[in-house]
Design a protein around this nucleic acid. Structure first.
Lengths: 238, 238
DNA sequence: CGAATCGTTGAGGTCGCTCAATCATAGTGG
DNA sequence: CCACTATGATTGAGCGACCTCAACGATTCG
């Protein structure tokens, strides 16, 4: 599955996010820190976030999630290349969610408390940190609206459109066709649905000619129809 | 209703949040900006967030919310005294939610783009801004988990416990008994439930001896039972 | 081939929704 | 003082979106 994502759909596509380049460009001495790879399925539990774990996801997909006592899982947000990881881990609060690698992934850790980064890093970094945090919040808020007040169909459509738009911004696809290494169960866990029901929702969306999701590939056939169904407005993604 | 909150339940309680004092303490010249009052029900639509509207809620309750095309409302978060308002309004992204005053409220605007505050303000302010943002995100994420994966009863219990804990931190109540100027409909809109169903949920919680909500007052009778039911852990509130 | 994972479909149950009515309280104008 | 209205809480009845349990097919991998 990972191979599919990394290799076949966008063979020469960029593997590095714009956001990362921006950070690196202004940073004295380039990009200090340590880059590490993680295998698919690696989980960093929320108790294990050390203060130096503020970093950037360079490649691959990950998910911030929570697991409840009865085993139910809620994926809070998917992390795509360029997204900050654990932006505020050492400010005194528990991070609150686990991070699970959904593909092979590489993460660049800045190796410093985020507080030091904030005060000693270049001004541009401060702005970026603020931007990244506020975007995270906007994304989560939008998901909250979806889960709280949209039905399963609109909710699903909305998430697929969001993923397409986010991937397009980092050069992975054109917003209508993109590699998506998620299982239906994972998608359901992000949407607050059961996997079985999501399966039926996807079938209906497919039968209506709106979007197909198969073989780790999302193909949006009617982006206007889908956006209308979901009331999707990508402004919150900047 | 507002009088009830302001006057009777916690007659001498602090009206100013700790967080605000912290900001003011380090700020050169005290607390520059402008303080304005708003009447109950005043709404600042998300299109109207000007860049200078970054500020702090000094008193009263407000709600960040979204209204969908069919009229359904989702309250994304309640804003309590000390909470930042529109922390990232001028960073290029639409704020994404309306702000509605749920009581008479006063907001202190810093009257500068948040970017200027970030770079020119005291270092302590940068840290606070980051803390405030990450806390907002944690709160919203926790609500997302609730709405996505907890049933209506646990969801309701969780929110009431959260409100109690947040209010306690700013000196409004002891976590088990606090003024709450919300209607059941508002509570329902924050929880992704219908008002009618929330009413039944509240009745069941009352009959089980866990919590009572009446006359703009929440009284938690069995905080341990309620926390167990909701799997509540207040660590995400710092 | 056996095991594991994922997707797909059917059947039935339930949680939470919608529609509708009633009651309580407060405010308003005559 | 009393209609009249508006808002919010409460309860009943019926329905539907979504869940759970269960089975089965397809694919991959050791």
């Amino acid at each position: 599955m990972t191979t599919q994502i990394e290799g076949s759909v966008f063979p020469g596509g960029p593997r590095t996010a714009d956001g990362l380049r921006e950070i690196g460009g202004d940073w004295p001495g380039g990009l200090p820190g340590r880059t590490r790879s993680y295998a698919t399925g690696t989980m960093i539990a929320r108790e294990n976030w050390a203060e130096r774990q503020t970093g950037v996801l360079l490649s691959g997909w990950a998910a911030a999630s929570r697991t409840l006592a009865d085993g139910k899982i809620q994926i809070i947000d998917f992390r795509l290349p360029g997204d900050l990881i654990n932006a505020c881990g050492d400010l005194g609060r528990a991070t609150g969610s686990d991070l699970i690698m959904l593909t092979e992934a590489t993460i660049h850790d800045f190796m410093r408390p985020v507080d030091a980064l904030l005060h000693q890093g270049p001004p541009r970094f401060r702005t970026m940190l603020l931007c990244a945090l506020s975007r995270d919040e906007a994304i989560i808020a939008e998901r909250l609206v979806s889960i709280g007040r949209r039905d399963a169909t609109a909710r699903t459509a909305h998430l697929l459109l969001e993923l397409g738009a986010r991937l397009r911004r980092i050069g992975l696809g054109d917003g209508t066709r993109f590699a998506c290494p998620l299982t239906q169960t994972m998608l359901a866990d992000a949407l607050g649905l059961s996997g079985i029901h999501l399966n039926r929702v996807l079938r209906r969306l497919r039968e209506r000619g709106l979007v197909r999701f198969h073989d780790a590939l999302v193909e949006i056939d009617d982006i206007d129809g889908l956006a209308a169904l979901a009331e999707f407005d990508g402004a919150y993604l900047e």
